[in-house]
């Protein structure tokens, strides 16, 4: 288990990371997601020991890694790091890269290298090749095998899939997830891609401007985020203002069921997938449509004073720009406290 407590890192007086506290459960997959410049990579580098904390503490499996001026150097932490483009050693073969952390005197060294190569799905003849002879996806697999070879206490993945094509990215993500689960290694993945974050995480941390904006299970963060910005970062969001009364919010989009006891005015989050077009409800006009194969993506301007809404409808239903439609909210809205 990794515990960060009040971790702060300043760059020229400006906070790169500010008072971050979080816990990465043992054997779990924690994803830190945020826009670029939110401090997520800095956080990863602090955990790896490439940079030193200015305040706070870092503990891995009850062993203090960094506290008030005392820091364990990176080579004594046993934390594996997989960088964006793999960072394979260009002057070594694939086999030498994978075996870099395994002592040459180890009896089962070459067998282990072969086994790891197989586990990341690469053919055995790759062992003698050089990194530049491999594709980006293959290099990333080798980087993962190399990290697994050191049997780390913690695995840090810094946007490891961002240089790959979309299709390959998902395949790699699934493979990495399976491998890590199999090995039972505590993992922290950093990404700016919210879809990737939601797909990979069993514990999600959203960072903004150097601080943690929200943290918890991904389903909770998507459905009940702490604030409007997190809601918008994790997916398309419709935010309307309404009056709360007995578990119902009265909004320009009509009545929306909410799980909230308060009375008074509040902002309410509705995800577009909860909007359906029906025979009655809030009136709106289709301003634009785009064909997406299985669906039409419609842009609808409600009559009420709310911004345009994006709604996906099955492609079998014909809608033309200019058509008048009625919007209903199915499911519950989320009230921002």
């Amino acid at each position: 288990m990794l515990v960060l407590d009040g971790v702060t890192k300043l760059y020229g007086g400006q906070p790169g990371v500010r008072d971050v506290s979080l816990t990465a459960p043992r054997g779990g997959r924690t994803v830190v997601v945020g826009p670029s410049g939110s401090g997520k990579t800095t956080l990863l580098r602090l955990i790896a020991g490439f940079e030193n904390l200015d305040a706070g503490s870092l503990t891995l499996s009850h062993r203090s890694l960094c506290k008030a001026g005392q820091s364990v150097p990176p080579h004594r932490r046993n934390i594996a790091y997989v960088a964006q483009e793999g960072a394979l050693f260009p002057h070594m073969s694939i086999g030498e890269n994978i075996g870099f952390a395994v002592p040459k005197s180890d009896a089962g060294r070459s067998a282990r290298i072969g086994e790891l190569l197989e586990r990341v799905g690469l053919p055995p003849e790759m062992i003698a090749r050089r990194p530049h002879e491999l594709s980006g996806g293959q290099q990333q697999r080798v980087a993962l095998a190399r990290a697994l070879a050191q049997k780390p206490d913690l695995m840090l993945l810094d946007e490891p899939f961002s240089a790959l094509d979309t299709g390959l990215r998902e395949a790699m993500r699934d493979m990495v997830g399976d491998l890590l689960a199999e090995a039972g290694i505590t993992t922290i993945l950093v990404t700016h891609d919210q879809a990737e974050a939601l797909a990979f995480a069993d514990h999600l941390v959203v960072m903004r401007a150097g601080s943690v904006a929200d943290a918890g299970p991904p389903q909770r963060l998507y459905a009940q985020p702490a604030d409007v910005e997190t809601a918008r970062f994790l997916g398309e969001a419709i935010v309307v203002t309404g009056a709360l009364e007995n578990g119902v919010a009265h909004t320009p989009l009509g009545m929306i069921a909410v799980n909230h006891p308060d009375q008074g005015r509040a902002e309410i989050l509705v995800r577009p997938e909860h909007i359906v077009l029906g025979p009655d409800g809030a009136k709106g006009v289709i301003t634009h449509r785009a064909y997406r194969g299985a669906q039409w993506r419609l842009e609808i301007k409600p009559d009420a004073d709310v911004p345009s809404i994006i709604v996906d409808v099955p492609a079998t239903v014909e809608h033309q720009p200019g058509d008048v439609v009625f919007l209903q909210v199915a499911g519950k809205g989320h009230v921002f406290a």
Binding site: G49, P74, Y81, A87
Partner: peptide, 14 residues
């Protein structure tokens, strides 16, 4: 590439 040296460090090399 500075990442290579960091990588080697994280893999236990002083």
């Amino acid at each position: 590439d500075p990442a290579l040296e960091e990588m080697a460090q994280s893999m236990g090399k002083p």
